[in-house]
């Protein structure tokens, strides 16, 4: 039952993540954290870290990580198969059709409208992460709940990416080192 549930969840992730990479993040968050509770909000962030730091598509990384945790190796296989199955069917069909209809105004129109929606979904997933790490949830109970170390580190990382154009992997590695130092000094 769990295997089927994993498979179906990742079919939805594969089917509805349009636009590559980060588009899968809001879907994985919804399926694995909000709907099925396979991961906590904290574990989901760690999955995002691992996916960002290792090669391979985020959806495939997520399928292996969640599948293994929930149902071992069969779980990982079921989830991975689920997440690539929509691609196998749709892209194979498109590759046959493509020669006949190179100009696809309807497809272009659909993609044009999907892109801004996907941007909003990714932004929302990122904001949810920020709220989670800044005060552990949706709304701060009081100003005292704000975690200054984590929030400050976020601001520094954001500036390094935006202004200094450092690579994400470098920024994340530095954040890890900073987290370790702050923690050992008893500041986080």
């Amino acid at each position: 039952m769990t295997l089927l549930q994993l498979f179906l969840s990742f079919v939805q992730i594969g089917l509805f993540s349009v636009g590559g990479g980060y588009a899968a993040i809001p879907l994985i968050q919804e399926q694995t954290v909000a709907l099925h509770g396979w991961l906590t909000a904290d574990e989901f962030m760690n999955l995002a870290i691992i996916a960002e730091m290792t090669p391979g598509p985020i959806a495939v990384n997520g399928a292996t990580f969640v599948g293994l945790k929930v149902a071992g190796l069969p779980g990982a296989l079921a989830a991975t198969l689920g997440c690539i199955l929509p691609s196998l069917v749709i892209v194979s069909l498109l590759s046959l059709l493509y020669r006949r209809c190179r100009e696809m105004p309807l497809l272009q129109g659909v993609l044009g409208a999907l892109r801004p929606a996907v941007v909003a979904l990714i932004a929302s997933a990122g904001l949810n992460m920020l709220l989670q790490l800044a005060w552990g949830g949706r709304m701060p109970a009081s100003p005292g709940d704000i975690r200054f170390a984590a929030t400050g580190l976020f601001v520094a990382a954001f500036c390094a990416l935006r202004k200094l154009k450092w690579s994400p992997v470098l920024v994340m590695a530095l954040c890890g080192a900073a987290g370790l130092c702050l923690g050992l000094l008893g500041l986080a």
Binding site: Y22, I25, D42, M45, N46, A48, I49, E52, R115, P116, V118, V119, A120, I122, A123, A125, G126, L127, M129, L130, Q132, L133, A150, T151, L153, F154, A157, F158, A160, L161, R162, P168, V171, M172, L174, C175, G176, A177, A178, G179, L180, L182, G183, L184, A188
Partner: peptide, 29 residues
Amino acid sequence: RYVSLALRGMQSGVAAVILDVSLSLGQHV
């Protein structure tokens, strides 16, 4: 303890990466 401290720091980093990406994409739109 050490791994979880480093991961906690990296959580700030990954949130920044995702928001940076979505901001760039949003600017395109």
